[in-house]
Design a protein around this nucleic acid. Structure first.
Lengths: 333, 333
DNA sequence: CTGAAAGCGCTTACAG
DNA sequence: CTGAAAGCGCTTACAG
């Protein structure tokens, strides 16, 4: 007790103290193994006294199931991503998994490294939220018996389980909302990121607009963040042909756009300008904004992933979730 | 090639294909082991062809170093926490570690479970950002040769390496700033969370106020979030004895307070009311707020943790980082 | 129900 | 530089 032991204690030590075989201690810690109540008690007592904890590294080694799921994600510090991360870790933990987060900058080599780690640690599954992993590496994951689940990207190889959100539907709906509000001159504020989701939102909105014969322009002046929203507003609102209805491909863009519209151009929302965002991040509901937006069903997605991993039953090749439109005050009713 | 292999391939297979011993393949993948260029090349080639990846579970088992560091954190979806998470994962990965995030709700049993996982996976270290882990479990971690690093909590057992931020200094400075701005009637908006950081901020501000003889009251009407800021404002600004200077223990509280002050009470900031936040989250700099605040040196903290883990040299028992005051427009100069 | 034994995939002295 | 062997801490048929 007085001299701290440097090494974790092993099942063998517990067995010795409890006066049973190492098999017995193994059994008392594995779900549904057959141990008599008496020996189980002895083992539990000894384990408690010694501070024993099953070594999941060793267990994973022989069971070929590490219990680890890797999350490959970029921009963790962004509201939407951090919400998803929170939901995913919570649900996965509830089913006994543990999540390893691999932070990628979106550059090719960092995401390759992330994929490599997922392989190194023999993760049961990897969830890809960012980046464009090389086809070959993803294939290696799958060949290794690992499941790979992707969120909002449809550009990945066969064998991958894809979860997507109905960007199509929502973007058309956004157009309709603006049209109903009487907007005659539209703009979609996007970013230069070019991810599948972003592209889909741009495309479906623009398409709906041309189909209806309403003029709409597309604006991409930087990465997907608040500042780009500001820059876009300054650029697009300064011209003579000012839009009166704006669809932002992301709430962060919308919030920046609103701030610039109000402060730099003294525009009133929704009277002078209607605006719609996407993702329904927390800040969208703040009193300074009250942005109408589309909510991604993050809880449901995380839940789906967790139970699918728990039951070890694979998802359909492509699973599409609906978005929920959240009406607030940035669009005239 | 056509029939996908379910199991990851092992070093033995690589050795066979390369025509060397398994030791040789092990050596080519361990830093600084002695292998001739020739055999290394053969091994690398075979590994590439087979899609081999060292099993870190097995490696961790024999090296007694998993390469994993656990982050125990609550409220991941909060701006401040998600920034810290981003910085930490990034820096740790850069030094070859991988981070496992354990999402705790702040309830006792969830944090105990998290601590247990950190033990199960034989993490090299655990970084505690939330909750009040039981003394005994933390001691078990340390007994097991694991390092435990805490952020902004000074209430943990011996052997723990504590990183804190100079709440003392900053809170006093906050008072001084408000005093210099001519505020005569102060309030500190806090929460019911009662974490060491929050308590420290309250206390040092209040202390400075009474010492200077300026009236100040303390308001705690809910958890540490935006909504509580709103509630606090509605409560405190409605009375006859309205404060003209407010210190919010967190930016999120401040942002909620500002929104309510502006919208529900038509107050102008900083003319009618000066307000100071804490943490300097991204939203504090948004045009709708321009909140003056204190920045936590998250990058430096993450960096410090990473290099300390890399060099395997322990931190001083208590390491204190200064805060940087970020002037914006919510306080009269 | 229980224990002795084999084996998971690796690394590291130990000889050569 | 290289290989055969021992061992990390576990689990799981296999007998009893």
């Amino acid at each position: 007790m007085s001299k701290p032991q440097r090494m974790p204690i092993s099942a063998l030590k517990v067995a010795e103290r409890a006066g049973v075989s190492r098999s017995a201690v193994s059994r008392t810690f594995t779900e549904g193994a057959s141990v008599s109540p008496a020996t189980r008690l002895k083992v539990l007592k000894a384990a408690e006294e010694l501070g024993y904890h099953v070594n999941h590294l060793a267990r994973g080694l022989i069971r070929h199931q590490s219990g680890i799921v890797c999350l490959i994600v970029a921009d963790i510090n962004t509201p939407h991503q951090s919400f998803f991360l929170e939901a995913t870790t919570r649900h996965l933990q509830a089913t006994g998994k543990v999540v390893m987060v691999l932070n990628t900058s979106g550059e090719q080599h960092t995401i390759e490294n992330a994929l490599r780690q997922t392989l190194n640690y023999r993760a049961d599954a990897t969830v890809v939220m960012s980046g464009r992993p090389s086809r070959s590496l993803v294939e290696t994951c799958i060949h290794n018996g690992q499941r790979v689940i992707t969120i909002n990207r449809d550009d990945l190889p066969e064998g991958t389980e894809q979860i997507i959100v109905d960007n199509d539907e929502a973007s058309k709906e956004a157009f309709l909302m603006l049209e109903r509000a009487g907007c005659k001159n539209l703009a979609v504020i996007s970013s230069t990121a070019g991810s599948p989701s972003i592209l889909a939102r741009e495309n479906f909105f623009m398409e709906a607009a041309v189909k209806a014969g309403v003029p709409a322009r597309l604006c991409r002046v930087g990465p997907t963040n608040y500042q780009t929203g500001i820059t876009a507003a300054r650029q697009i609102l300064a011209g003579s042909n000012r839009p009166d209805g704006v669809f932002c491909v992301t709430d962060l863009l919308a919030l920046g756009f609103m701030d610039a519209a109000k402060r730099d151009f003294s525009l009133h929302i929704p009277q002078d300008l209607c605006i719609i965002g996407f993702d329904d991040i927390q800040q969208a509901s703040w009193q300074a904004y009250e942005l109408t937006s589309f909510r991604q069903p993050l809880e449901e997605i995380a839940q789906t992933i967790a139970t699918s991993l728990q039951d070890n039953t694979s998802l359909p090749p492509q699973l599409k979730f609906p978005l929920q439109t959240v009406w607030r005050r940035s669009v005239r009713p």
